[in-house]
């Protein structure tokens, strides 16, 4: 409810596209990723949630870079680093998931409780 009050107050729909619009979009991606990580029982679903969170962060980087030209090179380069990190993280996470599947014949994260330290 609070958000709708804020949106009405600042007239988000009537002004030109500002930084706030892009930041709100990044927040949607971030929250969907968090909810996805929390609710999925499939390990690959959890991995997809991580990808969504990283995309939300990248949208923030690029939009700050666009709206503050002092940092336009930083925003794009950090976003590139995030993409490379995401690729590396997906590769290593899938390797771990495949290894787990080879041993347990499932990718249900609830079945992984014996992995605890």
């Amino acid at each position: 409810m609070n958000f709708f009050l804020f949106a009405a107050e600042t007239n988000l729909l009537q002004t030109d596209i500002t930084l706030h619009h892009y930041l709100l979009l990044g927040a949607i991606l971030f929250v969907c990723g968090i909810v996805c990580m929390a609710t999925k029982r499939n390990a690959i679903g959890v991995l997809m949630g991580v990808e969504l969170v990283l995309n939300g962060a990248t949208v923030n980087f690029v939009s700050f870079a666009h709206f503050n030209p002092t940092f336009d090179i930083e925003g794009q380069i950090f976003a590139l680093f995030v993409i490379v990190m995401a690729a590396a993280e997906a590769a290593i996470a899938l390797a771990i998931v495949l290894n787990f599947y080879n041993n347990h014949f499932t990718v249900d994260v609830d079945a992984a409780e014996e992995l605890k330290g």
Binding site: M1, N2, F3, F6, A7, T10, T18, L19, H20, L23, L24, A27, I28, F30, V31, F67
Partner: peptide
Amino acid sequence: YSVLAIVLLQIEP
């Protein structure tokens, strides 16, 4: 999301 939105809308562009 509402926490994030409230915080972000207070950012001075």
